[in-house]
């Protein structure tokens, strides 16, 4: 990037700062001067920004995720920092102690990476591939549904319900996932269906 461009962008940013607080009026001297070794290089330089909302509570604060690599370009993207989105009307850039540590959720040591199966009576999880895991799940579901589906109640009324397998929906999935889940669960006739609203 040429110096003139970066200088203009800097001044633009400084101008925006004036609008926010008088910070823009800090008496900055020669901006091309060397970086003091005390001051760490700004770590968000040249990262990709993505807007998101905090997945924890229902305030739904706006956050910006900064990543190395850009998913929209098909690159591997590693999120390196998450902070509040000042443009968001509710949180105005602020975050609570959970939101401010969202990066730790994304990168938690206990994030799951592979499907696992625990056989009856076993004391351990074993890795399994997705196909086998999913085939096993639908086999278990279908066997149960075929065995226990109630088409008519004792009065002969069509009830078409399946109450021996239940589904507990999440509380942080998207509305779109919720709708898709609704379709899948209800079309199978499931009635044992709940979410986390109660707790």
């Amino acid at each position: 990037m040429n110096m003139e461009l970066s200088r203009r962008q800097f001044l633009g940013a400084a101008g925006a700062g004036v609008a926010a607080t008088a910070l823009g009026a800090l008496g900055f001297g020669d901006i091309e001067a060397a970086h003091a070794e005390a001051i760490r290089t700004f770590k968000l330089v040249n990262t990709t920004e993505t807007r998101n909302t905090c997945p924890y509570c229902s305030v739904a604060c706006g956050v910006i995720m900064y990543s190395k690599g850009d998913r929209t370009k098909g690159e591997q993207a590693e999120i390196i920092h998450i902070e509040g989105d000042t443009d968001h009307p509710t949180n105005r850039g602020t975050l609570c102690p959970k939101g401010a540590a969202l990066l730790d959720f994304v990168k938690s040591d206990t994030r799951l990476k592979y499907p696992m199966i625990r056989k009856p009576g076993s004391d351990k999880f074993e890795r399994v591939n997705w196909d086998d895991a999913l085939d096993r799940i639908v086999r278990l579901m279908k066997d149960d549904r075929d065995a226990n589906f109630v088409e008519k109640n004792k009065d002969g009324v069509t009830v078409n319900r399946w109450i021996t397998t239940g589904f507990l929906a999440a509380s942080a999935t998207t509305n779109e996932t919720a709708w898709e889940t609704y379709k899948v669960v209800r079309s199978a006739g499931m009635l044992v269906f709940d979410n986390q609203a109660r707790v």
Binding site: F10, A19, A20, E32
Partner: peptide, 23 residues
């Protein structure tokens, strides 16, 4: 509300202070 600090830019910038500003 006290005006919040704007979102950071990811474009490289020259630092606004440094060695020359040591008091």
């Amino acid at each position: 509300m006290f005006p919040p600090v704007l979102n950071p830019t990811t474009v490289p910038q020259e630092p606004k202070f440094g060695e020359r500003d040591l008091m």
